[in-house]
Design a protein around this nucleic acid. Sequence first.
DNA 1: CCCTTAATTCCACTCAGTGGAAACGCTGGG
DNA 2: CCCAGCGTTTCCACTGAGTGGAATTAAGGG
Lengths: 258, 258
Amino acid sequence: MAQARRYAGGIDGNRSLERGVEILRAFRPGVDTLGNGEIAERTGLPRSTVSRLTRTLVNSGMLDEVRSERAYRLAASVISIGHAMRTGSPVLNAIGPMMRAESARRRLNVGLATADRTMMVYLESIRYSPRAALRNVVAGQQVPMELTSLGRAYLAGTTETERERLLKQFKRRSAAATRALLAEVRRSISAVERDGYCAVSWQPAVLAVATPIVLEGLPVYALNMSLQNVERSDALASELGAYLNAFAARCKEVLAGR
Amino acid sequence: MAQARRYAGGIDGNRSLERGVEILRAFRPGVDTLGNGEIAERTGLPRSTVSRLTRTLVNSGMLDEVRSERAYRLAASVISIGHAMRTGSPVLNAIGPMMRAESARRRLNVGLATADRTMMVYLESIRYSPRAALRNVVAGQQVPMELTSLGRAYLAGTTETERERLLKQFKRRSAAATRALLAEVRRSISAVERDGYCAVSWQPAVLAVATPIVLEGLPVYALNMSLQNVERSDALASELGAYLNAFAARCKEVLAGR
DNA sequence: CCCTTAATTCCACTCAGTGGAAACGCTGGG
DNA sequence: CCCAGCGTTTCCACTGAGTGGAATTAAGGG
């Protein structure tokens, strides 16, 4: 028969594995434990399936079982895999130390992020504080792509196709002020094309500027600098932007040499 | 038939999911990209199976594909899941800030870890340095259980069954000096039972002491303190041990209140 | 002690997953 | 320019691994 029969192991990928990953993803930042029921609800999977898959994830060391609560939490394995990701990243290895130095020198926050679906994930976020004890490095934190300078710089750096795909997803999600928001996102993208960076005040009293880093054979990254406790002004934004452009240029130089 | 037929979805867990996790685990710290062939070699899975599973992991956002090298690397998703694990951890939330304060006060390294198979994984490792810029926080780093104070404190804190299971695994792995090593491990465990902590110099010129933290409904953790650039002495070890015992007591107090 | 609520196990059905083999597509050498 | 060599992906017949609704068991709550 010339019928286009679809074979199971085919192009779609492995169903159970996909579902297992979705279960891990159901543990969003801040949630401690989840029961099978709650996981089933969040993922839309049948409860019996969830029960089997969570058991597998426990055996594989990705989840810890909390017998007393009949619940599960992410196991330490996930951070060790995360650590492997960070130490493997050639970009972070190359410019991480530069970022730390720059943060200290300019007395501002410096971050490096890339995309996970519609969120930006920090590979490294160096929070400057005059009080040394409060200086802080965070990795893995997510911020929304469409609302942040990091995200918009990423959009400017990625391919046309990917960008349009993502813009469609923002539309689908936030029923609110979509029209204005999308226009603003496009304006930020133009700013990146024109000035090399875009400036956004996502959180009150924080001014952030970001720029994309595009390298062959690597995902698109975005580099940012930010300052707390300032009121937004164009002058400040362009000063920060100039620092960022200079720093990004140095980074790209280092990265070009493999 | 009274035959004990084994049903597929049965007790063993889901095969594909298990394999997918093994593939993620194949990316050890320091490796950047892996091709399907290399993954197949490391995991012992058939190449065609690896090909299908890596494709699924790419679709699920856990791996990034590097077309030009026909290889894969861990995607940013894994650190965002890792971040979720850390922010969800009630223990880290409760005592993380205390650890940072204690590190600054005593001018030494403070770490919190738990087990992943036969390795200890840092949830938080605060490296003290007089030069503020070099102060450092690492999470996800692994150290061998049998060789470190952290690991031996963990062994002392875990159940009899689990401890013996792990000791057997050490024997299996390191063909060398096993006899002496195991005796040393047992001596450290006794030290924990007697003094509350054990002291080990795993790395040259670093003295570390550790103590277990055992809480209902949570994995066993180990807390450690360490000092670089010192020669090991019993006096120093017991001074550090006293600091650790005092600090651990305060931690347990905080943790007891939920 | 019984009743509600949720997790787990059971199990017949079937299609999703498997892996050996064949096809593909680089890459460098002659 | 073509070919050889090698690693990756696709093909596909086979089958048992995985599925999910129903039954069962276990855990609080009154």
